[in-house]
Amino acid sequence: MSKIKMGVISTVIGAMLITSGCTYTRAISQTNVPSERGKVVEASVERMMFLGIAFDNDDVPKLVEKLRDKCPNGAIRGILTKDLSTSYLIVIVRKTIAQGYCIKENLAADDADTNLKAAELETEAKI
């Protein structure tokens, strides 16, 4: 094999090792899933941290706003939140992804009413 070929292969392997990272899931949470499953909406925030150092986590609350913008005239239910981290060479990328069902506002209200009625019935049954 020529020296040039060896050089190219070494460069490709080196680049692959540097640009690929090990990823892991730190946490997952899921809220109640509605019966009416409309459009799926997804939003995420991510931060690249040199040596894993960050001085605040103020980008994370913006996730709510980003998700809300994806469903302007409705409510979002059945939200799955994933906290992920990917470790590259001297850099860690932290990502939080939220995904849920965008449903019409009246359906969301119906859902809330159903929950309320169920709670009332349960209380009456206890009495």
């Binding site: 730190r26 946490a27 949470s29 809220t31 109640n32 150092i53 960050a54 001085f55 605040d56 986590n57 994370v60 996730l63 709510v64 998700l67 809300r68 469903c71 302007p72 005239n73 409705g74 409510a75 979002i76 239910r77 059945g78 939200i79 939140t81 906290d83 932290r94 939080t96 939220a98 849920g100 506002e105 969301a108």
Partner: peptide
């Protein structure tokens, strides 16, 4: 003095259409 911020977990609840 500033200290590092380490995020362990973020969890979203349901989003209401009227909230905005």
């Amino acid at each position: 003095l500033h200290g590092c911020a380490v995020l362990h977990k973020a969890q979203l609840g349901d989003i209401d259409g009227r909230s905005s």
